[in-house]
Design a protein around this nucleic acid. Structure first.
Lengths: 335, 335
DNA sequence: TTGAAAGCGTTACCAT
DNA sequence: ATGGTAACGCTTTCAA
């Protein structure tokens, strides 16, 4: 049936210990023996049972990835880059979409514990969830990505959201805008972005009080709704900073429906630089987070913790980059 | 350290056999004992080691999912729906992006074998790859999704691509178009769609010979390039049927750059109805594949094969649906 | 350089 | 109704 280490050993006239050694090239093995064993392995197309080796205390080489939603382009891209770097290092990914639901988070964390994942990468996580402390207590390597944490108790790779918000606002200010509205959902990253935005405004001595309120979900629909709301206000903005590309697209739709043009009448800046930024019409000026780099770094960090044990935590904030496309323009001056 | 079944047994003053039985509620266990054991399990927050139980011949409850690219919205949506149904049934997913690369495919299949995945779902696969036969030989449950196979040797859930192509063409024909170009990459599904398209044309007695050639990749860029090419031809089309949404968006961009308008001058139909169809400007008329249903069905099928053993293969072709948005319009008549 | 045997955490069979 | 124990496939220590 399934070929095991015993089959190989028998066929090669050696003990299973020897086979194990050539498999892991540990211990000292004669060239000749090694050759023979290798040959039989090839011949039998033997695939060592990882369950068994994991049982003896070796790694499982599986990493759990908790993300809010695999169907969200940003997270899909991020997952892809983590996957790639993981495979590079010999790991495979068990991906779980949590929908920002703490119950699901806990359920999946338990699943990953039972399956002895070598580590867990959190790209999701409720604000108040105690998942992280729990994992740390149980000495399970964790890393957080795309979501900065106020507390440096785990390895973290995130975007410098403050700087991202700053850049977005700065770009618009440089174009002459003073009335810049914001669309955002109330999560940690967005609060950082808002801080950056506020800093840029105050640096430029601008005081625009728009009727800001957080939205419930980061979808096109909410972007549209909120933008519509802003446009109807007494003192409407000349620019909108949306905290992700989806929201920005919703805003553009709202503006168009109102009979106005982007960027001629109103400028829009998004965030993330997902594929859809290119698809939007006009193509979206946005703040690019490098999912590639984030994925690579977070995988490297968790791998380090897995192989070298608990070490000092590093906290990496990648600098986002303004990508200027066609949705922003200097403010219309009286002509 | 890690709490095992022994810890639970000791704490509860029973044997590990008993603990095992309450865990799997197999055998006969007294109510009282069961209660006590359960209590200890809770108290110790015991998570059974799945590696160990897999080793004894039980399922691993992991399913491998091979897809071309997790960062592609269509596949990300599909993966998400498979994930959901999988979790429903107690499985978790090991996702591997193959980039349509046969070497990676083989590498990941080996990985999944070593990790004793209960089954493998193929959403990817080279035309000539022998992966499927290989898996069948080794009695590993396989299912294929989003990619019809000419041979009914495995469970398959796919889109009725012929019908999809037919509908797309029919829709355009009904709008009065006769010169309908196609943009497609040369893969099985697209050949089916082309057949459907041809059928619709011949049913309507239309004979439009456009300078068709397959493209290399299904990206916006290729869509744009091919559309540009068509537009420059001597007898340009009045409508374009692109075999996925990305290509359609590329086509729209090309048309706009040429100074023409969609749908006034040229109509465009896409395929997939991914999120981006809604984002396009104008919103894309497209053929919807239900990733939700596909995911659910394929997961159900593989689960059936895993639990009930090899059975008759079923081959499900889901009917795609035309979603009419704003990128198509009846052909301009001389006024 | 090689092999025997203990052990990893479960499950399942057979006793009791 | 409960417990003892072999077996699962591998790694690793210790002897030879």
């Amino acid at each position: 049936m399934k070929t095991t280490i015993y089959d190989v050993a028998r066929e090669a006239n050696v003990s299973i210990a020897t086979v194990s050694k050539v498999l892991n090239n540990s211990g000292r093995i004669g060239e000749e023996t090694r050759g023979k064993v290798m040959e039989i392995i090839k011949k039998l197309n033997y695939q060592p049972n990882k369950m068994a080796s994991a049982l003896t205390g070796k790694q499982t080489y599986s990493i759990g990835l908790l993300i809010p939603d695999l169907a969200n382009p940003f997270f899909a891209e991020l997952a892809r880059s983590i996957e790639d770097q993981g495979h590079q290092l010999g790991y495979h990914l068990i991906i779980c979409s949590t929908d920002y639901n703490p119950q699901k988070e806990q359920k999946y964390v338990d699943l990953l514990k039972r399956n002895k994942a070598d580590g867990i990468i959190l790209a999701s996580g409720f604000e108040q969830s105690n998942i992280i402390e729990q994992l740390i207590n149980e000495q399970i390597p964790v890393a957080v990505v795309a979501r900065d944490l106020p507390i440096p108790i785990v390895n973290t790779v995130s975007n410098d959201d403050f700087y991202g918000g700053y850049q977005a606002a700065k770009h618009l200010i440089d174009l002459g805008h003073k009335k810049i509205a914001v669309i955002a959902r109330d999560v940690w990253t967005n609060r950082q972005r808002l801080d950056g935005y506020n800093k840029a405004l105050s640096d430029a001595n601008i005081h625009y009080e728009f009727p800001f309120e957080y939205i419930r979900e980061s979808t096109i629909e909410w972007g549209k709704e909120m933008a519509t709301h802003y446009l109807q206000s007494a003192d409407p903005p000349t620019a909108i900073f949306a905290c992700n590309d989806l929201l920005a697209i919703g805003a553009i739709q709202a503006i168009k429906e109102k009979g106005l043009k982007v960027p001629d009448d109103i400028s829009v800046v998004g965030f993330d630089n997902t594929m859809i930024a290119n698809i939007a019409d006009p193509p979206l000026t946005t703040i690019a987070q490098s999912t590639k780099n984030m994925g690579k770094h977070v995988m490297d960090l968790i791998n380090k913790e897995i192989t070298e044990g608990i070490t000092d935590k590093t906290r990496l904030a990648l600098l986002p980059k303004l990508i200027t496309r066609k949705s922003t323009k200097s403010i219309r001056t009286l002509s």
